[in-house]
Design a binder for these strands. Structure first.
Length: 291
DNA sequence: TCTAACCTGATC
DNA sequence: GATCAGGTTAGA
C-alpha cells in the first residue's frame, strides 16, 4: 500500500532518526529479502555512516559513507522500525541493522514482496529499476505529463500506474486523482483535451501534497515510524464502494481497470461517449485521419 | 499492453 | 474454502 506520500513520510522520519549514525553488519533473517550487489556482503555496511535518507518514486535510498547505498522498497506490506534491541522481534522481520546509538533498524514484511538492497556506485548507476523510472509527479510540468501520455493508447489509469511515465503513483492515489480531476479511468490516455490534462496535472500535485501533509494513508498495513497516517479520512472514492459520492450522492462503484480494483463515481467521472471514439477509429480506418 | 506470479493475511 | 489485496515484473 505504500505509495509516494507514505514513502515520503517514512523517509522524513528515517532521516531525522538515522542521519549521522553508523551502521553495523546486516543481520539477515530471510535470504530472499536482502539483496546485496555482486561483490558486496552483509559486512559492507559495518562502520559506514548514514549520510542522508532520500526517496525516488516509492524507493527509500540510504546513502552511506564509503560510496555504498542501502535501498528499501516496501512494496505492498513492508514497513521499517527503529527500536531498542530489547524490543521483541516482530513476526516477519527479515532484515536487522544495528545502529551506533544502540538501537536497530528493522525491516518487516509479511508478504515478503519488499526488498532491501545494498548497492555500490556501479550497481546503483546500473540499477534497472531506478533507470526505468519516469519523472517525480511533484516535479513534473504539465507539458511533460502531456508528452508522456501522448503515445499511450491504453487506459488513463494504466498510464498513471506505469512508473516509467510518472514515478510514485499507485492504486490509491491514481483513483483519488482521477476522481478529483473528474476523469474516467478508462479514458484513452493519449486523448485528453487540454483542459482535462490541466485538471489531471493540478490534482496530481494537490492530492499528493495533501496526502504527505496528512501523514499518508493508513489502511491496513502501512504505518510510518511514529503514528498512522490520516489521509484515508480524506479519500473520496478509494475504499468507498457502495457509499454515496461526497459530491453528487451517486453510489461509488468498484470496477476493474488495468487489472486493478478501481473506484469511481459514475456521475462525476463520465466515460466519454463511445460514438466519438468509433468515429475517430472509422476515420483512421478509411485513411482520412492521422493520429 | 495485459496477465499471472510472487507471498501471507484478512475477509467473505 | 475461496477470494482479494495498496507493487513490480517476466512473459505472453
Amino acid at each position: 500500500m505504500p505509495e509516494l506520500p507514505e514513502v515520503e513520510v517514512v523517509v522524513r522520519q528515517l532521516r531525522a532518526e538515522l542521519r549521522g549514525l553508523t551502521l553495523g553488519s546486516v543481520r539477515v533473517r530471510h535470504r530472499d529479502v536482502f539483496r546485496p550487489a555482486t561483490g558486496l556482503t552483509v559486512e559492507d555496511t559495518r562502520g559506514h555512516r548514514v549520510v542522508d535518507v532520500t526517496r525516488r518514486a516509492k524507493l527509500i535510498l540510504i546513502p552511506l559513507s564509503g560510496s555504498v547505498t542501502l535501498t528499501v522498497h516496501l512494496r505492498m506490506t513492508g514497513r521499517v522500525e527503529v527500536c531498542a534491541p530489547a524490543r521483541p522481534i516482530a513476526l516477519h522481520t527479515h532484515v536487522v541493522v544495528p545502529l551506533s546509538d544502540g538501537r536497530e533498524l528493522r525491516f518487516v514484511d509479511p508478504r515478503r514482496f519488499g526488498r532491501v538492497q545494498l548497492l555500490d556506485e556501479r550497481a546503483l548507476a546500473r540499477d534497472s529499476f531506478l533507470a526505468r523510472l519516469g519523472p517525480e509527479p511533484l516535479e513534473m510540468s504539465c507539458d511533460e505529463l502531456d508528452r508522456g501520455l501522448a503515445s499511450r493508447v491504453g487506459s488513463l489509469k494504466g498510464a498513471l500506474l506505469d512508473q516509467s511515465l510518472v514515478a510514485g503513483l499507485g492504486n490509491i492515489y491514481a483513483d483519488e486523482i482521477l476522481f478529483r480531476a473528474a476523469l474516467h479511468p478508462r479514458l484513452v490516455a493519449c486523448r485528453l483535451s487540454t483542459d482535462e490534462l490541466r485538471r489531471l496535472h493540478e490534482e496530481m500535485r494537490a492530492v499528493l501534497q495533501q496526502a504527505i501533509e496528512g501523514g499518508g494513508s493508513t489502511i491496513s498495513d502501512y504505518r510510518s515510524l511514529r503514528r498512522p497516517g490520516s489521509f484515508q479520512t480524506q479519500h473520496r472514492v478509494f475504499g468507498r464502494a457502495g457509499q454515496a459520492c461526497l459530491r453528487c450522492g451517486t453510489s461509488i462503484r468498484k470496477i476493474r481497470v488495468a487489472g486493478r480494483g478501481t473506484h469511481i463515481c459514475p456521475t462525476c467521472q463520465p466515460h466519454r461517449r463511445r460514438r466519438r471514439a468509433r468515429r475517430i477509429r472509422a476515420r483512421a480506418a478509411s485513411g482520412g485521419g492521422k493520429g
